[in-house]
Computed example of a mutant assay.
Amino acid sequence: MSKIIIAIDGYAGCGKSTTAKQVAKALNYAYIDTGAMYRAVTLYFQEQQVPLDNVAAIDAALEQIDIRFEANPAQQRNETFLNGRNVSNEIRSLSVSEQVSEVSALPAVRKAMVAQQQRMGQAKGVVMDGRDIGSNVFPEAELKIFMTADLEARARRRQVELQGQNQSASLNQIVENLQKRDFLDTSRAEAPLTQTADAIVIDTTTLTIAEQTDRVLALATQILAKQQTI
């Protein structure tokens, strides 16, 4: 059976990652959390105090970074490892969230991560979520989804996520963080967040994760069915 690439882009807090995981599980595809990759780089830069205006220091730091994912069946999630260390919870902290858009806008960082992502998807059968998957990483993806949602709904989802990781932040803090990320993600010069002309928009404001997943799976099934008749 033929396989496809599913690219899920959109704003922070729309449920992209959770939906992408569920879609990948249902199709028995690989799930690649590109956001976690950029968050891991951000965490490393913070811990090593890498100056974001020093190109040489950034290049040197990137050479020291190894990011990989491992399935955790017990918790039904993928764990993110940075240089052999499980950083799945650390990379979701508010401090990382506040800087990840700035770090991911750096040309050297994007070049390094995009190269890894493209290698991961060469054989197809992958679901990737992020900001520029359909526009930059895999412009040839057979299915492109663009997710959006009201700011308040996104903030409440992110607050629940943080609480589940024993981290706290006020709703106002999260709203401010999301507004800042939206601006940086959409205005950066290097591969900004953008809705491609062939992307299917899904507004997740009032949708459950199950409903989001079902919509994406229905679209993927249609594409796969068409490919089988060709």
Score class of each variant (00 low, 15 high):
I91S: 04
A218C: 05
V100S: 06
L143P: 01
R39H: 12
V160G: 02
I209W: 08
I200R: 10
L219Y: 04
F138C: 03
A189V: 03
E90A: 10
K111S: 13
D132L: 06
E211M: 08
Q163D: 06
F138G: 04
Y29P: 11
L184Q: 11
Q173T: 12
L106R: 11
L193I: 06
Q118R: 13
N89P: 07
T208G: 11
L224N: 00
E140I: 03
R68L: 11
L82Y: 04
A40I: 04
L178E: 01
Q46P: 07
A56V: 14
D198A: 14
R154M: 06
M1F: 15
Q118N: 11
V127W: 05
A153T: 10
V87P: 00
N54F: 02
I4G: 01
D214C: 06
Q163G: 06
E161C: 00
R119G: 04
A149E: 07
V41K: 12
E102R: 15
V96R: 09
I145P: 02
M37S: 04
D132M: 10
G13I: 00
P139L: 05
L184W: 09
Q22E: 06
Q46C: 13
T229R: 14
I4D: 01
C14K: 00
I209Q: 15
S97A: 13
V50Q: 01
A189W: 03
A36C: 05
T213F: 04
G13S: 09
V100N: 08
V216C: 13
K124Q: 15
V103A: 13
Q76Y: 07
T205P: 05
V103T: 04
Q222K: 10
Y38E: 12
Q227W: 01
G125E: 01
L178H: 09
E47H: 10
N78K: 10
N72I: 03
I200V: 15
G15Q: 08
I65S: 10
G84F: 11
R156P: 05
R181H: 04
E190M: 13
T208K: 13
N89I: 14
A36S: 15
A218F: 00
E161T: 10
L184I: 13
E102M: 14
I6S: 03
Q165S: 12
Q118E: 11
R215Y: 07
R92S: 09
K180I: 01
P139D: 02
D53N: 15
A24K: 09
P51N: 06
V175I: 15
I32L: 12
V114P: 01
R181A: 10
A60S: 12
R68C: 12
G164S: 02
L52P: 01
V103W: 08
R157Y: 13
G134W: 03
E63K: 15
K180C: 06
A12Y: 06
V87S: 03
M1I: 04
Q222L: 08
G13C: 01
I133E: 03
L193D: 00
P192W: 00
L224Y: 00
F146T: 08
P73C: 14
S135W: 05
F45N: 07
N136S: 12
V55E: 15
I8C: 14
D66Q: 15
V160H: 12
A189T: 14
D9C: 11
N54P: 09
A225V: 04
A20Q: 09
S168T: 15
Q167N: 04
V23F: 02
Q227A: 05
T148S: 07
I5V: 08
A218P: 00
K21A: 14
D203L: 10
S17W: 00
T213M: 02
A153N: 11
P51Q: 09
L162W: 05
F138H: 12
E176L: 03
